[in-house]
Design a protein around this nucleic acid. Structure first.
Lengths: 222, 222
DNA sequence: CGGGCGATTGAATTACATCAAATTTCGTGG
DNA sequence: CCACGAAATTTGATGTAATTCAATCGCCCG
């Protein structure tokens, strides 16, 4: 079904070789293994024991929860440099899957847990609290905003996180975006088309979005 | 407009006198002032400097964010025993107001910040991570669930938090509930009426809800 | 170059919002 | 204790944004 070539590639990776993984990693001492996951592969499941912490080196990851009848809510996307997998209790409260082929830096949670002086706990606190801020933004979007505003703020956020380029390469499918924004795939698609008609964006293929008037998009976010 | 009698009541309160404030308080060393806020009063504003941490002794508090055009999202309700006001950065990312007349235990953030051995940081981490779990639940509700499911899970949550009584006393107005659930006041009201017609609840006045078939409500949450 | 999956587009439907009363609640003052 | 009146809530009628159902299109990979 999926290409499995990346799966199970394990190597000890000197930290210096990893450029994209962001500043926080070395402070979290996420030295250890890099591991690849092919598109669609589960990284960890909801309810699974949480004994690793991950940092995205390349590719993208989605975290999500599902209701018993199959409805899925994507909670967050993690991009190169982002850290994820930190959990309150012993178990993961969310699932995580590879959006496309990804390479992750993996560290045992226990290794990152304590270094005696509490500095590690403070870093974990900062990460948790960042997640909390992002989650609150998400609640605001889902509770208050229209479909147009949701899609605009999604593109805006992604542009910022990917470095404010004029051209975005969306790692995720329309279905992923829809499940993140609490919309249907059709509504997301229609909104993209609407934005294109209005001259705000240009779509090139499935994955590439050119932001023609980033300011106008930002204005739409209210 | 509002009764102001509770406002500005300040006293040094020995910890032993406070029964309702939950287990975590003494560990957070939130010894200090109790302070009353009348219904509707601001406790802190979005963007304000965050130099206190609060624990609810009696009454209820709502945290919220507002969009520039006035749309409001209630992010959380804090009930007796809950702690709130802990923030990532130096400033509050949300506002907080008294839902009804409340009495809070207030501590300087700096006093709770460090006790040398990192134990305090670990407690803050746990609190942040609890907030994160609740926020994720909220995202799931707003992104996936119908109006009926939202109201049912709201009542369910509140019942659990207030101690699984058969009769709930809602501290908040229909507008607060609507803004929490991403619905309108009319939809919340209609859904309450629907539940009453279906024999799931009975409404007594504005604030009292009797849960006739708690199991059926739980089932509705999916 | 062809097949298949993801994306787009169109038409019909619906859940919820909006607009507009009617009704109830509850604090206040007589 | 009861009546009044403002505010909150409920109910009704209508509108609409987003969903659902149903084709069709067009990337992209073999």
């Amino acid at each position: 079904m999926y290409a499995h070539s990346v799966q199970s590639a394990r190597t000890i990776t000197p930290l210096a070789e990893i450029k994209d993984a962001g500043q926080e990693i070395d402070r979290l001492r996420l030295v250890g293994l890099t591991r690849g996951f092919a598109r669609g592969r589960e990284i960890f499941g909801e309810g699974e024991h949480a004994d690793h912490v991950y940092s995205v080196i390349s590719g993208a990851v989605r975290s999500f929860r599902v209701l018993s009848d199959g409805r899925r809510q994507v909670l967050d996307f993690y991009l190169p440099g982002d850290i994820f997998g930190i959990e309150p209790g012993p178990d993961h409260g969310v699932g995580a899957e590879a959006v496309n082929d990804v390479i992750l830096l993996v560290a045992r949670r226990s290794l990152a847990a304590d270094d005696g002086d509490g500095a590690m706990t403070r870093r974990l606190l900062r990460l948790a609290v960042d997640d909390l801020r992002r989650s609150r933004d998400h609640v605001l979007t889902l509770g208050c905003r229209t479909a147009c505003e949701r899609v605009a703020s999604f593109l805006n956020d992604l542009a910022v996180r990917l470095g404010n380029r004029r051209s975005l390469d969306l790692p995720m499918s329309r279905q992923d975006i829809a499940d993140y924004l609490g919309l249907t795939i059709e509504t997301v698609s229609r909104t993209f088309s609407l934005f294109q008609t209005a001259g705000l964006i240009r779509l090139h293929g499935r994955r590439s979005v050119e932001l023609c008037r980033p300011g106008a998009l930002t204005d739409l976010c209210i």
